[in-house]
Design a protein around this nucleic acid. Sequence first.
DNA 1: TTGATATGTCAGCGATCGATGACATTTCTC
DNA 2: GAGAAATGTCATCGATCGCTGACATATCAA
Lengths: 95, 95
Amino acid sequence: MLIRTPAELGAVLRDRRKKLKLDQSTFAKRIGVSRQWVIEVEHGHARAELGLILRALDALDIRLDASTEQAPAREATRQAIDINAIVAKARKKKA
Amino acid sequence: MLIRTPAELGAVLRDRRKKLKLDQSTFAKRIGVSRQWVIEVEHGHARAELGLILRALDALDIRLDASTEQAPAREATRQAIDINAIVAKARKKKA
DNA sequence: TTGATATGTCAGCGATCGATGACATTTCTC
DNA sequence: GAGAAATGTCATCGATCGCTGACATATCAA
């Protein structure tokens, strides 16, 4: 999953947490933060601390890869793909 | 490149910035932060804001991928690899 | 050296973090 | 519906963010 915004990161964390059958409280304890922090981050809190985010990812066995990407040939490539993914995910949750 | 700590992220940002021939000032302006922020983040500042970090990565055309990894078969796999990499990098800088 | 450029350090400031604890709401299981 | 569990909201508080601006070191060329 490509991560471009805090909201996308929050969605990844939440999905993975649920997949692992953890509730926010036990997850928070596991990474040493408050439940409040988990709530805000899962909602896309943009000013969350980098270090805590990395700990959260690690606790959920999510690996982060940084790679320099080729210049995307097509104009809409980067943005369109992400927007579609976000919309699709949003729809899925409501329906 | 696998990102596991703020220091690793900082190193990635610095390397990429230099590869693109940007100095800290122009880079800072490009992402809308102070030069001070760039300095601290490149040095591994753990409490940097997630949103600014993502903007910095985007400005340097670094993409971030989140993926759930398989349970590593060997015991030491994950930790050992990273610790070695970090130590090696630290040594290289001093020498 | 002198000058130019890049990077690192410091102090002070307003804004916001994340923690805590209580309460509200939503989502289930009976 | 009753009750429990999970999630969301709110206010308060000390700690720290990132910004500014000035100064301090590199680093390199002439």
